[in-house]
Design a protein around this nucleic acid. Structure first.
Lengths: 227, 227
DNA sequence: TTACACACTTGATCCAAATCAAGTTTACTT
DNA sequence: AAGTAAACTTGATTTGGATCAAGTGTGTAA
């Protein structure tokens, strides 16, 4: 379950780049992890900051926004337990172009670049697993860039719903983790359009809306087919 | 200059992930490079293939397309001398979701995964430079995903023009390296729209169109401001 | 140089989604 | 439980760009 609190070890193992560590390596990494708790609304990091650490969400939720040149902002990720951000910072200093804010009280584990580099010098085989994971992330982002220019809003919303629903039992009602306004920003559209599309999907019998921000996916296959 | 033919050493050094190699390391990498020449229209690799090598363009040009679920295709990159693709394949087997085609006779250098892995085992410090480069690529892609959902077509075209013009002297006429149709696909729009937007920009006095596919940027700052 | 195919342009129309403008619900505060 | 502010929905209108349909260039090959 994504809601529960994670220990340092669990925390590290959830980060894909650390998934394949041996017990010994895991110990080594644990030794350089710091923990910190943020309150709701706290800023984990700001655009313009120099990033010098990897941040792992141990418990809670945080939103990561990217600022576009024209001042508009784009929700990049919704981070939950086990998600992480800033892994690029472990390898070289980068200036952040995004900022993150805690949605609820949130506990994070973090690893400083300097500590990590020292560790890497001692245990170079660590790097291989990380390289693997980076490769995957790149493919994923290429896919996203493609879908944004080739799919309609309806299609992207359908994808988002199916993806989000994946962490809940099939066919059951669940609460969307984001408000309509935020889903809208994430998908590059408006709350009104989200509202209308959800109605269309409900009329088509593909999902059912409940009170609050709850929905149940009834026909995942049809949704996924949405172009 | 991007048009000239590159030797094996030059070729490798142009790949960002190999930029910081020492002379000795460079020798090591050179030893595992293969060369190959493709004719215009030849396919360098196909969607569905299992990628098992890094491909570097030594001379020529190739287009890389991504196929979307609905059958539409999206031009991902235009590769020129020194550009490369498939670096993820060096770390683990991936099934390609894109395909690449030579635009003109094109010479490539390639490195097989197995060879590279063997080398990495011998010289683990190689991995650090690569990790760096991956981090940069990820930021770049995140930026692209953002711009696509937050900017208008006009803005994206303006960005594309400014970026493309950067490799030519300021204010001079140059030939666009892609046809309108291809620029259109790349930006997720249509040739008609590209045509109209270029006219708008010309009327605004920001650029000047010449015969063929030539243009000259007159006011880069205004173009860059386009939302 | 003429012919032909292809790229490009221009105009007319159409459509998905944004925007604008009220309502209505929901959830939070006291 | 009432009051309030925010989130959401619904409707009317507008609009950026796609699509469709002719044209007009442009480069190439005989």
């Amino acid at each position: 379950m994504r809601e529960q609190k994670l220990g340092t070890h669990d925390c590290i193992q959830l980060v894909p780049i650390f998934k394949q560590l041996t017990t010994v390596e895991l110990q080594q990494v644990s030794a350089i992890v710091h923990e910190h708790v943020y309150e709701k609304g706290d800023v984990l990091f700001n655009a313009g900051d120099e990033a010098d650490q990897l941040t792992i969400i141990a418990a809670g939720q945080a939103k990561v926004y990217q600022l576009a040149a024209n001042g508009r902002e784009q929700l990049l990720y919704l981070l939950q337990s086990g998600d992480f951000d800033g892994e690029a910072a472990l390898f070289n200093p980068v200036i952040r172009t995004s900022y993150a804010e805690a949605l609820v009280p949130t506990q994070v584990c973090s690893i400083q670049r300097s500590d990590f580099q020292a560790l890497l010098a001692e245990a170079p085989q660590l790097a291989l697993g990380i390289l693997n994971e980076f490769g995957k992330r790149i493919s994923q982002l290429e896919g996203k860039a493609t879908s944004v220019t080739t799919s309609s809003i309806g299609g992207r919303l359908a994808d988002y719903l199916v993806e989000t629903a994946a962490s809940f039992p099939a066919q059951t009602m669940f609460t969307l983790p984001l408000q309509k306004k935020e889903i809208a920003v994430y998908l590059g559209t408006t709350p009104e359009t989200i509202s209308r599309k959800l109605n269309e999907f409900q009329t088509a019998g593909w999902l059912k809306k409940g009170r609050g921000n709850q929905i149940a996916i009834l026909d995942e296959d049809q949704l996924a087919l949405q172009d």
